[in-house]
């Protein structure tokens, strides 16, 4: 595991430990890809990829809405349910999503999330620089993986 990956987990774990009632933290990028996630309890059966995709999309859609209403930058989206809450905060190129119980200190969660989001934004920049998306800069290993996938698809 690279240093940046460990940093994601550390920051996400710190968020969980910061306040009682936080069940899960997910870091997702703005294309909907789940980058890292940490749960309070080892057994918490959720489809993280699906939750992450929605969290990112909802946050980005709110952001679009904000743009058309000219109300400035979006910091946090809060969704309140009968039995819990979901928070999503912008974290640079990503979105930090926090899932909690119903009764929580919202003020504290907001503060913790904003602090963590600033840290995550930095680490995320490093992480994305580490994994360039440009086609030209691929390693031999990556090419090998793409060829293997191609072979797999031909089979089907």
């Amino acid at each position: 595991m690279s240093i940046t990956v460990r940093q994601f987990d550390e920051i996400l774990s710190d968020v969980i430990k910061s306040e009682p009632g936080i069940k899960k933290t997910i870091l997702v990028d703005r294309t909907g890809l789940t980058i890292a996630h940490v749960s309070k309890f080892s057994y918490y059966p959720v489809d993280v990829d699906g939750i992450g995709a929605i969290a990112s999309a909802v946050f980005c859609a709110s952001e679009e809405q904000g743009k058309s209403l000219d109300v400035g930058d979006l910091t946090i989206v809060t969704s309140e349910f009968g039995d819990g809450k979901i928070f999503a905060a912008g974290a640079g190129k990503g979105v930090l999503c926090v899932i909690t119980d119903k009764e929580v200190n919202i003020g504290m969660i907001r503060l913790t999330m904003m602090k963590a989001a600033a840290e995550l934004a930095k680490v995320l920049d490093e992480f994305m620089a580490e994994k360039p998306a440009v086609a030209a800069g691929k390693t031999d290993a990556e090419r090998e993986e793409l060829r293997a996938a191609l072979g797999e698809l031909e089979k089907g």
Partner: peptide, 14 residues
């Protein structure tokens, strides 16, 4: 209303 999403894995790495 918004989207459908499903991840499909071709190989362990893709």
């Amino acid at each position: 209303l918004f989207f459908d999403y499903t991840p499909m894995q071709a190989t362990a790495q893709v």
